[in-house]
């Protein structure tokens, strides 16, 4: 598969956004959008469950993005684009009154906490692993299973969702919560 060549890769998101706002041409805005087009397409695919629809929606999202990129005060371009894409799809879906059930199941809020329990530079590996095993045992059943499957068996989300018959967002929050609990547990015992 030969992928398109991204433009202006030397610039950061913020620089691109700045130029997009300054310039009359949409060159930089398009470059920024294209940078995350795999995300946009994937998200549209998630909401629309249809490749043709997803592709159309990418173009529509692009149009809305172009309109808003100049006027909106954007702090984090990627997060902003994510919210824009998601809101667009949800709005359209609601309008089309389609897949109500699927919409209801979408968890709209998710924590964006960033931390890495496996940042092991400060911790002795051996020690931490033992601690970890103890801590994992303290987790709730579902969290434990997800953490085990994801981190220890390195299974994919798809495999986990199929194995535990849970939704993607469920698996994600279980892993996230399990990870947070693990972190608390390990900090306590430190």
């Amino acid at each position: 598969m030969k992928w398109f060549k991204a433009k202006h890769t030397e610039l950061s998101d913020d620089d691109l956004l700045l130029r997009a706002k300054e310039e009359d041409t949409p060159e930089y805005a398009t470059a920024l959008f294209t940078r995350y087009i795999e995300y946009v397409y994937g998200a549209c695919l998630k909401y629309y469950k249809n490749e043709d629809d997803a592709k159309d929606k990418v173009m529509e999202v692009y149009h809305r993005y172009l309109k808003k990129v100049k006027t909106h005060d954007v702090k984090n371009p990627k997060s902003w684009l994510y919210v824009l894409t998601k809101n667009f799809c949800l709005e359209k879906l609601r309008k089309e009154n389609r897949d109500k059930d699927k919409l209801d199941n979408v968890i709209l809020m998710q924590s964006d906490e960033v931390f890495h329990p496996f940042n092991e530079e400060e911790v002795d590996k051996e020690e931490s692993l033992q601690k970890m095993e103890k801590c994992i045992e303290t987790l709730e059943m579902e969290q434990k299973r997800c953490i085990q499957l994801f981190y220890l068996k390195k299974q994919s989300y798809k495999e986990i969702t199929e194995q535990l018959s849970l939704s993607w967002s469920n698996v994600r929050s279980l892993i996230q919560n399990g990870r947070r609990n693990l972190k608390h547990c390990m900090e306590k015992n430190a």
Partner: peptide
């Protein structure tokens, strides 16, 4: 964002997603 994209791509029959994305970029 990445998570939702992955969820989208995990869908059945999203085989030629790359081609479609390239098409979309061309359209852009």
């Amino acid at each position: 964002f990445l998570f939702e994209a992955l969820e989208g791509y995990a869908m059945e029959g999203s085989g030629d997603a790359g081609i479609r994305i390239n098409d979309a970029v061309e359209g852009l």
